[in-house]
């Protein structure tokens, strides 16, 4: 199976809600560069079907996870505008396989950020807003099990996102230690703080700008950057209510 066929397979797995076997099992020689190519083809397929880019999402942003796979750079995926969930809305289960949710920090830029050589100060200067957010991930692989190459090819499991309304930029110095609590049907299931993301989620934006620069791309103003999961992901099923509480704002949804 060539990279084009793999991209189509994964896109169809998403559209048909039918998980597939890991690519690394079908094609043992499947490499990281293949994986990146498949992600790119998949995004082009989505665009050809009328999808618009809403932003980027970062993955592999915890030091523990990085050590597990022995990769010390975050990975990225495309977020499609059609997958945005309105604040405190409904997450439709009829378009999902085995979804999970993670609390995240979303960053929106007021001016384009173009690498290489973007520094943390460049990031801070370019920020329009920092918002509480959550991401829905939903692997297109059976059992939510994959290798690094598989998950990159699968657009890093991207499946949806919600962005809050309270701009945390005035409290940027306190961001890393804001306490975040995830509840499922009222019970606390995870807690965390943004420091879980590379020690500082703004480093994730810096990393994205510099990695896009390798392909002569930038982060345009106005796009949303989801910087990486703050806690373990939390699975949910039809009927569950998920709430992500920040000191400043609560984001919630009901799975229907």
């Amino acid at each position: 199976m060539n990279n084009q066929a793999i991209a189509e397979l994964l896109r169809n797995a998403m559209l048909n809600r039918t998980p597939v076997t890991q690519i690394s099992k079908i094609r043992p020689e499947f490499s990281l560069s293949d994986a990146n190519e498949v992600q790119e083809i998949g995004f082009n397929l989505a665009q050809a079907q009328g999808e618009k880019l809403a932003g980027y999402k970062m993955g592999l942003t915890s030091k523990a996870k990085q050590r597990d796979v022995n990769v010390f750079e975050p990975i990225r995926g495309y977020m499609l505008a059609s997958t945005e969930i309105p604040k405190n809305g409904i997450v439709k289960m009829n378009s999902r396989i085995h979804p999970r949710v993670e609390p995240e920090v979303a960053v929106v830029l007021k001016e384009e950020l173009r690498g290489p050589g973007v520094t943390l100060r460049d990031v801070v200067r370019s920020i329009e807003g920092i918002y509480p957010a959550l991401e829905i991930v939903d692997s297109r692989y059976e059992g939510f099990i994959f290798k690094l190459e598989d998950v990159i090819a699968d657009n890093t499991s991207a499946a949806g996102f919600m962005v809050g309304r309270v701009n945390l930029l005035p409290q940027i110095d306190e961001l890393n230690l804001m306490g975040i609590t995830v509840r499922k049907n009222g019970a606390i299931v995870e807690t965390g703080a943004p420091a879980a993301v590379l020690g500082d989620p703004l480093l994730s934006v810096m990393s994205l700008a510099n990695s896009l620069a390798e392909e002569a791309k930038s982060i345009p103003a106005g796009l949303v950057v989801l910087t990486g999961g703050i806690t373990q992901s939390v699975s949910f099923v039809k009927g569950d209510k998920i709430e992500v509480e920040w000191p400043q704002e609560i984001l919630s949804f009901i799975a229907e």
Binding site: A64, T181, T191, A193, P194, G199, T231, E245
Partner: peptide, 10 residues
């Protein structure tokens, strides 16, 4: 390296 985070609600 950050290895654990949480909130007081835990």
């Amino acid at each position: 390296d950050v290895v654990v985070t949480g909130s007081g609600a835990a």
